[in-house]
């Protein structure tokens, strides 16, 4: 197991390097640059900017300098669009915010989703099942960019209970709507996956055996059914977790949270190369890390899996 983890981590480094090179090339292939605008900058002003940010270097040089900066100083470079800030500062400011609402959202989605899915499977074809399926389909078809403005409309304008946007680590009022808007569709997916997987497990041989030897229903479900039923849920949760904690452009836009999710889209549109690379690497690294975590969880859940 330990050797497996080490091997996986060793593979992560070339994977990230490939990700960097590939993103770098794609990014520079897009027309325009960080300083392209409707009113073009005079050539001498543009030359000064390009010299300052090293944009006049050949492409290979830019990639080498960039990777070297990360390896040596963990420095992801300066933002071109936010001249007072470095990429490290931008991520340090925005990531804790998305991490907070993403994590809470994740917990909400897993707890509600698994409970709903499991309950639906256990009481298949009863009103509870129909309700659970109805709720999860409803939540799935209501995209967050529709849900977010509705939440603001209801809770801020009509009821006046919650602030319509902004962020504070001290005041949980600001967290509620982002958590609900982000978590709902994940919750729906988790509920659906749990339900179908649970149904499959409930009809398998070892459950029949457990029933035959007279175990109480609660014990059968908690000890013998839930764990194997969660296997497909966990493979879904790995990437879902990463995309939740790195935020969502929709949440950051509609709730003005100042999170990192909006930086993805903004940096691409602004051609803010360094920020775009920074967030790409962040997501890349987290994805690699959490797919490893998922694999380890597999081994824990399923005794048949050994590395």
């Amino acid at each position: 197991m330990f050797g497996f983890i080490l091997r996986r981590l060793a593979v992560a480094i070339p994977t990230l390097l490939l990700l960097i090179i590939f993103s770098f090339l794609l990014m520079h292939a897009a027309p325009g640059g960080p300083f392209t605008q409707e009113r073009a900058l005079p050539p001498q002003v543009l030359a000064n900017l390009e010299a300052k940010y090293g944009l006049d270097d050949p492409l290979w040089r830019k990639i080498v300098d960039y990777v070297w900066g990360i390896v040596r100083h963990f420095d992801f470079g300066p933002s071109f669009v936010y001249p007072d800030r470095t990429v490290n500062q931008i991520i340090a400011a925005g990531f804790p915010i998305t991490l907070t609402y993403g994590l809470l959202s994740f917990i909400l989605a897993v707890v509600v989703g698994v409970t709903l899915g499991a309950a639906a499977a256990i009481r298949q074809n009863t009103w509870l099942d129909y309700l659970a399926v109805g709720v999860s389909i409803g939540a799935q078809v209501l995209p967050n960019f529709v849900m977010a403005p509705i939440l603001v409309l209801v809770f801020t304008l009509i009821l006046g209970w919650l602030p319509g946007g902004g962020w504070s680590f001290q005041n949980p009022d600001y967290w509620i709507m982002p958590v609900i808007a982000l978590g709902t569709s994940y919750m729906a997916s988790i509920a659906r996956i749990t339900r179908s997987s649970m149904l499959e497990v409930l009809s398998s041989n070892h459950i029949r055996t457990a029933k035959a030897k007279g175990l109480p229903a609660r014990k059968i479900i908690m000890r013998h059914a839930l764990k194997p039923a969660l296997l497909p849920v966990i493979s879904y949760l790995g990437p879902a977790f990463v995309s939740m904690i790195t935020g969502s452009v929709v949440i950051d836009m509609y709730f003005s949270t100042g999170g990192i999710g909006k930086s993805f889209v903004d940096s691409a549109l602004n051609r803010d190369y360094a920020v775009m690379m920074g967030v790409t690497i962040l997501v890349g690294a987290l994805t690699i890390l959490f797919s490893l975590v998922v694999d380890i969880l597999y081994a824990w859940i399923d005794p048949k899996i050994r590395y």
């Binding site: 403005p149 603001v152 801020t156 319509g164 950051d252 836009m253 509609y254 003005s256």
Partner: peptide, 15 residues
């Protein structure tokens, strides 16, 4: 106050 969506900006103004 930064509100990146003009419709939400309007709602928050009305609120």
């Amino acid at each position: 106050v930064t509100v990146p969506d003009a419709n939400i900006g309007l709602t928050r103004y009305q609120a």
